[in-house]
Design a protein around this nucleic acid. Sequence first.
DNA 1: CGAATCTCCTGGAGGC
DNA 2: TGCCTCCAGGAGATTC
Length: 271
Amino acid sequence: MPELPEVETTRRGLLPLVGKSVKSVTIRHATLRWPIPPQLVTTLPQQILRGITRRAKYILCEFDTGTLLLHLGMSGRLCLLDDNYPPVKHDHFDIEFTDGYVLRLHDPRRFGAVLWLDNKINDHVLLNSLGPEPFEETFNAKYLIETFSNKTLAIKNAIMDGHVVVGVGNIYASESLFRARIHPEIPANKVSLKSCERLVTEIKSTLSDALSAGGSSLRNFFGADGNPGYFQQEYFVYGRTDKPCKVCSAPIKCIRLGQRSTFYCATCQKR
DNA sequence: CGAATCTCCTGGAGGC
DNA sequence: TGCCTCCAGGAGATTC
């Protein structure tokens, strides 16, 4: 499932499309997380793609009359094709450009989204209450302490909440907590300032390490060019149940937290 | 309000 | 080979 580094890698891979003019839009399977708006077929053609930005895990394609919001869900992949190749199963949505390039959404589990935002995008309900981007200066230990002050839920669940900070998915939540030596079950409001400082540092470095590695490592991620644009990244704890901790050799534990697998080292991450 | 649970969906893995 | 069950997971919706 694409986490923030995969989404950002995908966005960068799509940048060659900026400046190009839309020729046609094809919707093959409209029922993603929400229905793909049918009016895209008539509104997008002849518009020029002005820019591609990102907020949280949303990819935002700017046109003159609005913004196309793309989300990859868990199994989504955006391919940049140099010709209109025959679609395969789960190729749900295409934007064909006048020079032959095609932006194609492939999403087997259909948790992804394609939406059209008319208004100022920051007013949209999906975007207007998001927390800071992890790489922003405003995401710091002081902010975390204040945000956590009334939160009793487990710290791991807290950092996966997009209203706290965006872009920390299940893999990087476990990885960041390990690197910060924080037990995932500690109530958020019990995490000390020192620990929050380490956590902020490690969330930033974990995500930026993954970004420089070209995304993450899950089997269904592909770069925007359609190739497996990643290499297997070494995790400290994620998916390493019972394997030795890379720091202390104790066996890695796996528990369920908020219906999600959570990995940690009981020796390195004290309660 | 916060917190926990439910839900969407398909493919792959494992059991028999 | 086939069928069944379980699991994976982003994040909004629902419930308490």
